[in-house]
Design a protein around this nucleic acid. Structure first.
Lengths: 237, 237
DNA sequence: CTTGGTCATTGATCTGAATCAAGAGACAAG
DNA sequence: CTTGTCTCTTGATTCAGATCAATGACCAAG
């Protein structure tokens, strides 16, 4: 529950050296703008379970994820949780309707983010049409992703949910340039359950079933796709 | 399945007279820009079931909904349907990842839309930061709405789903300036089911139960909130 | 007035996933 | 090595919602 970034600031590096720039909103910036951005952001390290921001909290910062994986989730008053997404390096976090965050974000493993104060970031993008268009593009992608997830949550079986999840997670990692046959799953079973609208038991059983049927192999920290075409078939229909 | 707008164009009216402008993206425009926009858009009437565009189709137009209600949905290969949203006057439709639509949109009742060719609209907004920011704002709202819906689909019971739906629908209508105690439901039970991730029977049974318990009254074409505070209680937790 | 169509409701039954309940590993702290 | 704490898995049972099956209400066409 601690918000680490108030107490735990790392030394600054330069945007021009940033490894995630090609995947990030800042890919749209030129040299001059990058140097300007250098003065806005601060690198911050988060430990597992550290929160970048919480639902209902005043929006004071935006974040660009540099390293690690984050969990984005909403809680119901009685404690039920829905994970609305997992963030990977290059993802931009914190955009919210006006003043308050509509979901919480915390670190799964160790995480590095680039933190931007809300106000100065807003000034920075205000009159930069190419950057605004880039943000638009990212949000359209995000929205389309959200709609796909609604289909999954509303209309798919447990087996289809798990299969789709594994594949779309693999594809996101692949876009960042990782291997494809072995799929690391840094999040726990409960996280997967809360993402897919299932219980932890059903997720566990479904993984076991997929392994028993010879589609995957369960490994510590992830899975291996033994018969990816059969997993694709499950995810497709 | 017919796309009516190729054959069924209405006579043009002016943006400055447009009733939905205060609710729409074009609220951000000044006099000169409005006159420019007049030349881009054409008003088009759709009949029930007419499609504005279909999933996978090339994006040739954007739409601003002027009158009526539309259904936005995605289909799985086997015919299962998830409605990702209902559009009301003022809503902007058609933004998609690059070239293709990611969902279908059709008319529930009779509908009037303002149709903009993709290319010229893109040129029009390209260098207008205030308009780009306005679009951004609308998309953040959309995304936040999508996330709320994920919580509903993934973590709520049938009764909670129906209660939340009725209230959020009422609130959207209220923002457009309609009455609040009686809630018109222009969409059918099957549409509500496909929106909430339920079957038509469960929706029907749930409405009946809410009526039996004295929370609502079922009327032709809608419902009346008899004990809205009890409905709110269901929707909240 | 009858016919056929669509849509909504209700009842009976079934089932996929939730819930309840143990274990089994993994691992850090003492 | 032991102990406690997690997380994951597996089994038994229950239950919310799906499925199957009529029936009723409404309405436009003949």
């Amino acid at each position: 529950m601690r918000t680490a970034w108030t107490t735990n600031e790392a030394n600054q590096l330069f945007c021009s050296d940033c490894a995630v720039r090609p995947f990030s909103f800042c890919a749209a910036l030129d040299e001059t703008e990058l140097r300007e951005l250098d003065h806005l952001g601060r690198r911050v390290h988060l430990l597992p379970r550290d929160m970048a921001f919480a639902q209902e909290e005043l929006t004071t910062s935006f974040f660009n994820l540099l390293e690690g994986v984050m969990r984005l989730y909403k809680l119901l008053p009685d404690g039920r949780r829905q994970i609305v997404g997992f963030a990977l390096p290059g993802d931009f976090l914190g955009l919210a309707t006006s003043t308050h965050h509509s979901f919480s974000a915390d670190a799964i493993g160790p995480v590095t983010v680039c933190r931007f104060p809300r106000a100065s970031f807003a000034l920075f993008i205000e009159d930069k049409p190419h950057l605004l268009r880039r943000m638009n593009e990212l949000m359209v992608r995000e929205l389309s992703y959200a709609q796909d997830h609604m289909v999954l949550l509303g209309r798919r079986s447990a087996e289809e949910k798990v299969a789709s999840f594994v594949l779309s997670w693999r594809d996101r990692l692949a876009r960042l340039g990782a291997a494809t046959k072995t799929v690391p799953l840094p999040m726990g079973r409960q996280d997967i359950a809360d993402f897919l609208g299932l219980t932890i038991e059903t997720v566990s059983r479904t993984f076991s079933k997929l392994e028993r049927d010879g589609l995957i192999e369960i490994m510590p920290g992830g899975i291996r796709l033994v018969a990816s075409e059969r997993v694709e078939a499950l995810a497709a229909a």
